[in-house]
């Protein structure tokens, strides 16, 4: 079970493991409990707002049509402009910087700069308050990109701090690092599939987060685990059925369905299920961290209702 007891929940993992689905499911779950939630999208792959029939998230916090749930796209360029405005204060000073093509190029080129500016917006959102002084959001969900680039993202404050050594950008980087590493405010969950490469990469990521990036780790969420088709006590009658399928013609009157095809499909699912179980065991043995498993949802087509089913397994 995933608790919403930290303001910032980072969901990270390699592409294609269902990270955005998990973020959406968590957002829906929290919002249903009346928790004021903001989903933050970043990178090039914005998938969340369209699931709600909305256009892609923008730099403005936009409601998703579900009470207590909004989303935003953390645009590094826009965030940098905000930062320049707040540092230089006067429009005559900041305007040339914000409009300069040099600066635009620098955001792309400066090592870790783009990433730092993305995270800078996150810090501001975490600190945002309502007019009465209470936090604007109870929960901020960050859909963080694939593992390799994800690590670049979370390392960027350190990278910039080492490069800058002092000055305003150094101070920004330090604030970001403080939020990311704060046990009281932040948790990171890593999503994976129970397959060889995703599990190996997750194990690498766990040690990088633990020993290098120092973000407080929550759970590993193992997504799309194929459940066992048969109970162990069904083994005997299943064997009998297999023998029968080989020898007797028993398919008449079943329409298009043939026993051998059914057994073949079940074998495939059983194979995946066994494989998933092996990799979950490997993950548990090596990661030394809590794991949450989510079953494969056999929904065709995939809709928001399917996402809610995923959420049902997290509650």
């Amino acid at each position: 079970m995933i608790r919403f007891d930290r303001r910032l929940l980072i969901v990270s993992g390699k592409g294609g493991v269902g990270k955005s689905t998990l973020v959406t499911a968590l957002g829906l779950l929290a919002a249903e409990r009346g928790i004021e939630t903001l989903i933050c999208e970043m990178g090039e792959n914005e998938k969340i707002a369209p699931q709600f029939g909305r256009r892609a998230s923008s730099y403005c916090e936009t409601p998703l049509g579900v009470p207590h749930l909004s989303s935003i796209y953390l645009d590094p360029q826009e965030s940098f402009n905000d930062y320049v405005r707040s540092t230089l204060k006067f429009e005559t000073l900041w305007r040339p910087v914000v409009e300069s093509s040099l600066i635009k190029a620098f955001i792309q080129a400066g090592p870790g700069f783009k990433e730092l500016m993305t995270l800078n917006k996150l810090v501001e959102l975490e600190r945002a308050v309502k007019p009465n002084g209470t936090p604007k959001y109870d929960l901020i969900l960050l859909d963080a990109p694939a593992t390799g680039h994800g690590l670049t993202l979370f390392r960027s404050p350190m990278l910039v701090m080492r490069g800058a050594k002092a000055g305003p950008i150094f101070q920004k980087a330090r604030l970001i690092a403080e939020l990311l590493q704060d046990e009281q405010r932040t948790r990171m969950h890593i999503v994976t599939l129970a397959e060889e490469m995703p599990v190996s990469e997750t194990l690498d990521m766990v040690s990088a987060i633990r020993f290098d990036v120092h973000i407080p780790l929550g759970d590993i969420v193992v997504n799309a685990v194929v459940p066992a088709t048969f109970a162990p006590e069904q083994a005997e009658v299943l064997a009998g059925l297999r023998r029968a399928a080989q020898t007797v013609a028993i398919d008449q009157g079943w329409g298009d369905v043939r026993l051998l095809d059914m057994l073949a499909a079940a074998d495939q699912l059983e194979g995946r299920s066994r494989l998933n179980a092996e990799h979950i065991a490997r993950l548990k043995a090596k990661a030394n961290i809590d794991t949450v498993t989510l079953p494969f949802i056999f929904d065709v087509p995939w809709t928001l209702a399917s996402v809610r089913k995923v959420g049902g397994h997290l509650a």
């Binding site: 930062y83 540092t87 900041w94 910039v160 050594k165 000055g167 950008i169 150094f170």
Partner: peptide
């Protein structure tokens, strides 16, 4: 290059 010097103010000299 006024921009560059302003930029320096934004980021810090050593960087």
């Amino acid at each position: 290059k006024v921009v560059a010097s302003l930029f320096e103010r934004v980021t810090g000299g050593e960087f």
